[in-house]
């Protein structure tokens, strides 16, 4: 088992930042360190070796793929998706005809397909404008394809049943060559974009932002910064959904939000 100390981590983040413009300085240390160790083992490198390889742009892309944690599910936390369908989306529709949604840190797209299915079952798919972003270009390509392993589909099916969708998940995919190929028409209007929450700017205004299980990889200082961006990117009375084990209460601008559902961690912007 390889090990890295804080000084090594610093050298790595400094290099990636100055040379390539990605800033991992404020990532949560415990998981970031495990990711670095994982990369060292994967490529059989020591810190020096890694630093050398990180001078190369192409390798740095691979590095980004590995550093980010892409584990995701369709309808992760089914009770959250029920709240979305039964409370949040109807509330948005009271004031807006079109629903603008941003999936920040969409990973391989399961969350986006889930949203599209939910909207389709509400007959709202064409009233929605969805933008899905991630830092990791590789995973975005995967998301666009919408091909998942059959093994993962078992879990996705279970989640969908708990979500109490109006059909069966099989309605939305075909099994080809041992893979589940999701119905592309679901995401035909989705705009997939490469966007870095750390360095990237504000690019649109939304009624609903989902950023679930992404900010857990950041330290509190960075969570604060990113929350400011979400605040700016939301219409007044727009909604922000974070992971069920995340909390905003200690952020500087927490008072600009109210908790709409504490169990499922849905917040609403109430002040500009």
């Amino acid at each position: 088992m390889k090990d890295v100390d804080i000084a090594d981590l610093r050298r790595i983040t400094d290099l990636v930042k100055t040379k390539h413009g990605y800033d991992f300085t404020n990532y949560a240390m415990s998981s970031f360190k495990r990711r670095i160790v994982r990369i060292l083992e994967l490529y059989n490198l020591n810190t020096e070796g890694l630093l050398k390889k990180l001078l190369d742009r192409q390798f740095t892309e691979e590095f980004l793929n590995e550093i980010t944690v892409n584990v995701t599910e369709m309808f992760r936390d089914p009770s959250f998706w029920r709240i979305l369908r039964d409370d949040i989306i109807p509330a948005i529709l009271l004031n807006h005809q079109k629903i603008r949604i941003w999936h920040a840190g969409c990973s391989s797209g399961e969350e986006v397909f889930s949203m599209a299915i939910l909207l389709k079952e509400m007959d709202l798919l064409h009233n929605a404008q969805i933008i899905a972003t991630d830092l990791d270009t590789n995973i975005l390509e995967k998301a666009k394809k919408g091909e998942y392993t059959i093994k993962n589909m078992e879990l996705n099916e279970k989640n969908y049943i708990r979500f109490q969708g109006s059909g069966v998940l099989k309605d939305y995919y075909k099994e080809i060559n041992g893979k589940a190929i999701l119905d592309k028409s679901l995401v035909a209007d989705v705009s997939w974009r490469n966007h870095d929450l750390v360095k990237g700017g504000i690019f649109n205004k939304f009624d609903l932002i989902l950023c679930r299980n992404v900010m857990i990889y950041f330290n509190q200082a960075l969570q604060n910064e990113v929350l400011k961006k979400f605040h700016e990117s939301l219409f007044k009375y727009g909604y922000l959904a974070i992971g069920s084990k995340e909390s905003l209460i200690w952020c500087d601008i927490a008072n600009k939000f109210i908790v709409v559902n504490n169990e499922e961690k849905v917040y609403k912007k109430i002040k500009d």
Binding site: A28, S30, V69, I216
Partner: peptide, 15 residues
């Protein structure tokens, strides 16, 4: 679930 220097928790969905 991990503990961080600074005595707080971090959660993660790693493999």
């Amino acid at each position: 679930m991990s503990v961080e220097l600074g005595n707080y928790f971090s959660l993660s969905t790693e493999e």
